[in-house]
Computed example of a mutant assay.
Amino acid sequence: MSGLSLPRPLPLSTVAAGFVTVLVGFTSSVAIIFQAAQAAGASPAQVSSWIAALGFAMGITCIGLSLRYRNPVVTAWSTPGAALLVTSLSGVPMEYAIGAFVFCGALMALSGITGWFERVMNHLPLPVAAAMMAGVLVHFGMNAFVAMKTNFAMVLAMFVAYLVLKRFWPRYCVILVLLLGIALAALQGQLHLNGLQLQIARPVWVTPAFSWQVLIGVGIPLFVVTMASQNVPGVAVMRAAGYNTPVSPLITWTGVTTLVLAPFGCFAVNLAAISAALCMGKDAHEDPSQRYLAAIFAGIFYLLAGLFGATVGALFTAFPKELVMAIAGIALFGTIANSLSTAMRDDNLREPAMITFLVTASGTSLFGIGSAFWGLVAGGLTIAILNGWRRTCV
């Protein structure tokens, strides 16, 4: 059947998965975006424009690519890229910073058009991809219990409610646990909504300027970090969840979107990993072929976030951190379990998968590139050595 066909009735869990995806994405790193914009000397209007441009970019790509491929495609801003900008944009005029964003988007689009990135990712074994996914997500699962240190009553109530609802009403357990957490936070006086005013963001255009020093010092590192720390694990998460979506068009369109919206502050949009996993599990939809609807709802919420700009960032930060930590971990329990099961199922790849998991979970960052990339490198090296040794000994 052609066109978008929404199930009747649409599962509330699907909408909830989209909302939690945006909630986790914003609360985990929106503060870094503010810092990066301020490092470039952005005015309050430009900061709002950055959030708006990123929100629109993520919304358009989530909705468009998920509809195109009928698979859950979730995009995100480059969090390690934003962290890089905090330190590298100091003293760089805004127009040259925008030029670096345009350059980064062009490099991303080129890597998608040429197909080299997809050719590399097609050699990634599924157990290793699943192990990397588990390593990325395991801290979120543990943080659901770490949050009990500072708000034991709320997080314990959410966890117990999850177990009960998972037993009797699994389809709606995550959204109901989220609503319970919000209600408990309100009763505890931890929802900081005073003085919050929603205002529609106004995009601010900055004409890009180019300097080879800034392109080399900012544009290329931003591209490398985004591809290695974001797009590599993003593809691995899709593969581990069982989706063989063509990679090159995804990279191309995220690059083109970055290129087009860069003058408004969109520094880099890429495939999501952690937040994408929220749209790819059973809690998003019982039917894997319908989970792309969760990504579409994530896109809708991203568009709303972009429409209201920086004010929505303040809205998401109004939730207590314990609530966000708990709901993110609870929503990912099933995905973590499935990833570990897939990672360990092949006897020949069990040890490479274990090493991939351990390196990824360690959080080790080298040369500004995150542990997910190095986990895959370690797993690939282990496969090359152990499998080569086995073939020699046979």
Rank of each mutant, 00 (worst) to 15 (best):
V206L: 11
T207C: 13
P208S: 12
P208V: 13
W212T: 14
Q213F: 15
I216K: 11
V218P: 03
G219L: 05
I220H: 03
I220R: 07
P221S: 09
L222T: 00
L222H: 02
T226V: 11
A228R: 00
S229W: 03
N231F: 07
V232F: 13
P233K: 01
P233D: 08
G234N: 05
V235Y: 00
R239M: 15
R239P: 04
A241W: 00
Y243P: 04
Y243T: 08
T245M: 10
T245Q: 08
V247A: 00
V247R: 08
V247C: 07
S248K: 09
I251G: 01
T252G: 09
T252L: 14
W253K: 04
V256H: 08
T257N: 02
T257G: 07
T257P: 04
T258N: 12
T258H: 08
T258D: 06
L259N: 02
L261R: 02
A262G: 03
A262D: 03
P263S: 07
F264C: 07
F264W: 10
F264I: 09
F267N: 14
A268Y: 01
N270W: 04
L271R: 07
A273S: 14
S275N: 15
S275E: 08
L278D: 00
C279G: 07
M280Y: 03
K282P: 14
H285V: 01
D287F: 14
D287G: 10
D287E: 11
S289R: 10
S289Y: 13
Q290S: 14
Q290A: 13
Q290M: 15
Q290I: 10
R291W: 04
Y292N: 06
F297P: 01
F297V: 02
F297K: 02
I300A: 12
Y302H: 10
G306S: 13
L307F: 15
F308A: 05
G309I: 00
A310S: 14
V312P: 03
V312Y: 09
G313A: 08
G313Y: 01
G313S: 05
G313H: 04
A314N: 14
L315Y: 04
F319G: 03
P320H: 09
K321Y: 09
K321P: 06
